[in-house]
Design a protein around this nucleic acid. Structure first.
Lengths: 218, 218
DNA sequence: GTCTATAGCAGGATAGAC
DNA sequence: GTCTATCCTGCTATAGAC
């Protein structure tokens, strides 16, 4: 599966270019010829290094997507560092920031959410990997962070729907950039992204509980 | 473009089956052979009736997707019938209902949102059609309905982001059913869909303004 | 490890009989 | 309008030289 960590060689170039192309066009719309040409290597390299196009695709998720998801999660957790039981708005703000501004370059971010959404749309086996190792734990983490600050009247199921809704917004604003730009007339420059983070934070905060966080401290 | 309205023939069968397959697998992942086989007609029929696979795809949007979008919109507007200036919660409730329960069968609904989201992800030319003729007008309609009930402090841009967020939720809960089921442990039965409508309505209502609509009537 | 060359097959499109 | 047969181009995968 994973070879030596130090190789800036064909294998790595292939993974890099393949990821971009898969994200842009989807698995079926990209050909091996296209990938190898972009990676400036030979057609046969995909089969030599990965044993086929599908395995290359899966390896993109394993060796590039998952680590990037970890970086996002770390960014999220660092923003809350030191606070054992952060306020709701801190949690939601950190979440929106991590996904929309966060540690990734804009290109990486786009790539990341496109790949994920394509996989959600068209599960090919990589979804199991993502759901179990990345999404599920993250959702549980969020639930545990938010739970103590919400009224008990809000059941766990309701909270979970709230969290899914927040993620839905984050994904949508990242993924459907073209449509969002078309509707708002704005491009994804830093100012607009900051605006989006602000919006998502505010909207979700109100949506979740509708009350000010300070009022609920015991 | 559009032929006689009465033909339950090859042409119509092709459109029906093609839509389902395109929705399930995406444009590139479906072959013409697969479509014609499903429609129980000959391979050459696609080229004869539509002049190619891509034109068939576009015609699916023109003759099936757009009319269905109209039905959703009518369902939304009927739910508000008679009220010249409905309350926010009525608007949001009608919206969530129209998309998640609404006039479509569950199969149609799935098909509909899958097609849309695939097109958002991978614009092929059909997006222009959708954005200009369906989405843009609908968003404007929503904005006009919601505006009079919100404080003036909420600018048009903020309102627009709110509307996009609501749509994002609706789409997500329709589109990523597999992931949602996995996380919540629930299937999309009528009870769960009703629960989702309730959730989206509540979450959006709070998210939009955070205040009870009755308080803002002049 | 990387290349060239090619096998083997599936894709969309088309010509022409009926 | 619908069929069969076929073209041609694209694909993935592999064999074997270097």
């Amino acid at each position: 599966m994973t070879e030596k960590p130090i190789d800036n060689t064909t294998r790595l170039r292939l993974l890099k270019k393949a990821e971009i192309l898969f994200a842009e066009k989807g698995f079926h719309a990209v050909g091996v010829r296209e990938i190898t040409k972009a990676a400036k290597c030979n057609l046969a390299a995909v089969n030599y290094h990965f044993g086929g196009k599908m395995n290359l695709y899966l390896e993109v998720f394993r060796s590039r997507w998952v680590p990037r998801a970890r970086r996002i999660r770390h960014s999220f957790e660092e923003a809350l560092q030191g606070q054992e039981s952060p306020f709701i708005d801190d949690v939601v703000g950190a979440l929106a920031h991590a996904f929309l501004e966060g540690p990734l370059t804009d290109e990486e971010r786009r790539c990341h959410s496109q790949l994920m959404y394509r996989e959600l749309a068209n599960p090919t086996g990589a979804l199991d990997l993502l759901a179990e190792n990345v999404m599920q734990p993250f959702f549980m983490k969020l639930r545990n962070l938010l739970r103590p600050h919400l009224p008990e009247a809000i059941g766990d199921d309701r909270l979970l729907l709230g969290i899914i809704s927040i993620i839905a917004m984050v994904i949508h604003f990242n993924f459907s950039r073209e449509a969002v730009s078309r509707l708002t007339g704005r491009t994804y420059d830093p100012a607009f992204k900051a605006r989006l983070v602000e919006h998502i934070t505010e909207f979700s905060l109100k949506g979740l509980g509708g009350m000010n966080q300070q009022e609920q401290q015991p």
